[in-house]
Write a protein that binds this DNA or RNA. Sequence first.
DNA 1: TAGGTTGATGTAACCGCTTACGGTGGGACG
DNA 2: CGTCCCACCGTAAGCGGTTACATCAACCTA
Lengths: 363, 363
Amino acid sequence: MATGREIAELCGVSIATVSRVFNQPETVNEETRERVLRVARELDYRPNESARTLSTRQSTMIGLVWDTDHRRPGWRHPYLQDLLIGLKSALSAHGYHLLMLATSGDSREVGASLADPVGYVNMTRRHHLGGLVLIDSGSDAEAFETFAQSGVPCVAVDVAVDGPRATYVTSDNVGGAVSAVRHLTRLGHTRIATITGPPGNQPSEARISGYRTGLREAGLPVRDDYVVAGDFYRTSGTTAMHRLLSLAEPPTAVFAASDEMAVGALLAARAAGLRVPEDLALVGFDDIEIASVVDPALTTVAQDKPGFGVAAAKAIMAMITGAGREAPVILPTQLVVRDSCGSRSAEGTVARGPEASAGHSPL
Amino acid sequence: MATGREIAELCGVSIATVSRVFNQPETVNEETRERVLRVARELDYRPNESARTLSTRQSTMIGLVWDTDHRRPGWRHPYLQDLLIGLKSALSAHGYHLLMLATSGDSREVGASLADPVGYVNMTRRHHLGGLVLIDSGSDAEAFETFAQSGVPCVAVDVAVDGPRATYVTSDNVGGAVSAVRHLTRLGHTRIATITGPPGNQPSEARISGYRTGLREAGLPVRDDYVVAGDFYRTSGTTAMHRLLSLAEPPTAVFAASDEMAVGALLAARAAGLRVPEDLALVGFDDIEIASVVDPALTTVAQDKPGFGVAAAKAIMAMITGAGREAPVILPTQLVVRDSCGSRSAEGTVARGPEASAGHSPL
DNA sequence: TAGGTTGATGTAACCGCTTACGGTGGGACG
DNA sequence: CGTCCCACCGTAAGCGGTTACATCAACCTA
C-alpha cells in the first residue's frame, strides 16, 4: 500500500501538500496538484481510514443498531432488505458506510446489547461513528430513548424518539389506517373491526387512531369489542379473528394492523367456513411479499420500504453536517387494492389519493 | 473519552503497561493489572479503534459485499435477514463487526461496485478489514472470482470461489434436489419435470444434477422437455409451467428450483384448472416464508438459513487467524413436507433423512 | 524602497495505541 | 559473593494521516 509519504517524495513535495490535495484542493497550486494526483493514481494510493479517523476524530461510518429481540425470537423485520438497500445507496452517495454493530464478545467490551444501549453508544465513540440508525425489532422503544438522549446523532425507524440530535422516520400510519377503513366504508361495510399491534407500539397505536378516525369520518360508532389486540404475528391474527367471529354480531370487515395478522385472520376465517371476500372483507398493512401471494390476494396499506432507508440516510447526514436535530420524516402510504375486499379492481391496482396521508399527526 | 494516557497517569504507570493489561494481561503483575482495570472501569475507558487499527494494521471489521444487481432490480435475496442474524451473532463472539461496504460516492474513491471489485478490495485495505463476506445477488459469480483471487480472506455464499485465502458456503443442493425428487417418486410419480434457475448459476446447476440423480435412482428416464429454464423469479415459474402444460404428455409432478418459481407454477396450474396436489404435485426449494402461506402449503427443500451466516463467520475467522484457505462448507438441507404433493403428513412435518445430504458433490 | 498582502508550501505537533528494546531488582546458583 | 535469569515495567519509535503555524517569494501600494 502506497502512503502519503511515498507520494510526497516522488513528487518532491511535503506530505502536508499531499494531504491538502485531497482535502483542500483549492489551496494548492494547480500544477503540483495535478502532479500529485497523477502519482497517486499510478501508485493506486488510498488514504488510510484509520489514520484519518484518528486524526480528525470523525469516521465515514454510520452504526446500524439492529438486533433480534430475545423475547420475540421468530420476529423478522417485514422489510429489512429494502430498508438496507435504501440506506446503503443513500449513504454511499456521501461516501459513508454502514457498520453493523455486534453485541460484545470482545473481552475489552463491557457488553453491548439493546439491554445495554450504553455499550452501543460507547462503541460509537470507539469507532468515531458519525451517528446511529436504529431499527426497531419489535419492542426496543425504551432502549432507543437512551440512544436518542446520548447526544449521538440518531435516527430511528418506526419509533418516535426525542433527543438533542435525534429524529425518526415512520410511515403515515394514521393516514394509512384511515385510507384502509375508508376503503371498507365505501364498499358499504358498517361493521368494521380491527386487529391491532402490541399495546404501546407506536405504529400500532397510530393505526388504531386512524381506524377510529376512519369510522368517525363515515359516521360509524367505535365499538370496543371490535378492537382486539394482536402482536403483529400471524398467530395472533388467527386468535383475534376467532374472537371476533364469536361475537354476537361479528364484523363483516376487518382491518389488520399487519399483513402477517391479516393472513392469520384469513386462515381463521377460512377455517370457520367463511369466504373472503364474500363473507368477510380483509385489509392488511405493510404490503409484504406474501400479501400478493395469498388467496385471495390481500388488499393492504403499502409502506415506502426503500424510502425508509433513504430518508434515514438523509436525516443522519443532515445531522452530521448540521448541528441540531432534524424534523421527523413521515412517509406517505398507499392503499394497494387487491382481492380481499371484493373490490372490482384488478390485482395490483393502486389507489393513491393525495388525501390519504394528509392532515394527521405522525404516529 | 478517557485515553490510555490518563489511566496511566492515574495509576502511576506507563501507557505501555496500560496497553499490556488489555493485550497481554499475563505479562503484567496482578496487582497493577487490577489497579489499571479498576481505574479503566471507573473512567469508562474504551480503546480507540482507529488508533489500534492504525498501529496493528488489523481492524475488527469484516466487509460485507452485497449489492442489488442492476440487471435484476426486483431481485431480493431469499433469506438475507437470517443470514445476517447468523453472521452477526457468530462474528460478535469474536468481537468483530460487519461493515457494509458502500459503492463509492467519495471523491477520493475511484469507484467501487461489483463491476469494479478492485474498488472493494482497495476499500478492504483502506479499512484494514479482516476479510470479506460475499453475498450473491443472483449473478455476481465472475466478480466474486476477482475478490477471491485478490488474496484477501473471502468467503462467498452460494458461489463456489477459489483463491489463496478464499472459500465458500453453500447448501447441499444436489442432495436437496435428490430428496425432493425421491419424495415424488415414492409417491408414485413417474412424469417429473423441473423448473431450473438461470443457466450458469451454481446452485441451480447443482439442483439440476440432483434432479437427474433422483430420477436415475428410481430408474426413470431424464427427458429434455421436462427440464425448463427459469431464473428463480416467480414469473419465470409461471411461464415455465405453461410450457410444461402444453406438452403432449405433461408432467404430473414438478420440482421447482426455488419457492418463488414454485409459487409461479402454482398460479399457472391453478389458472389452467388443475388442482394441486390432486392433478399436480409441486416441490420447491428454499423454504422461504411464503412457502407455508400459499394454498396448498408448499412442500419444499429447506436450507439452514442462519447456518449460512454462522458457517461463513467461522470460516472467515479461521482464515484470519490461520494462514491458508478453509475447506468449503456444505450445509445439509431438509425436506419439509407440506400439502403440495398430496402427502398425508401434517403441516410442518419434517422428513429428515441422514442420507438426504450425503454422498454428493457440493454444487 | 519600506511595508503589507497574498498564494503556495514546508515544519512539526498531534491523534491514541502497540511493541521492540532496554533497564532494574531480586532470587537461584556455583 | 559474583553471575545469570527472569519477571516486570518504562522509553521511545512508529502507524499514516491532518492542520495550526511559520516561511518565503512575488507582487502591490504609498
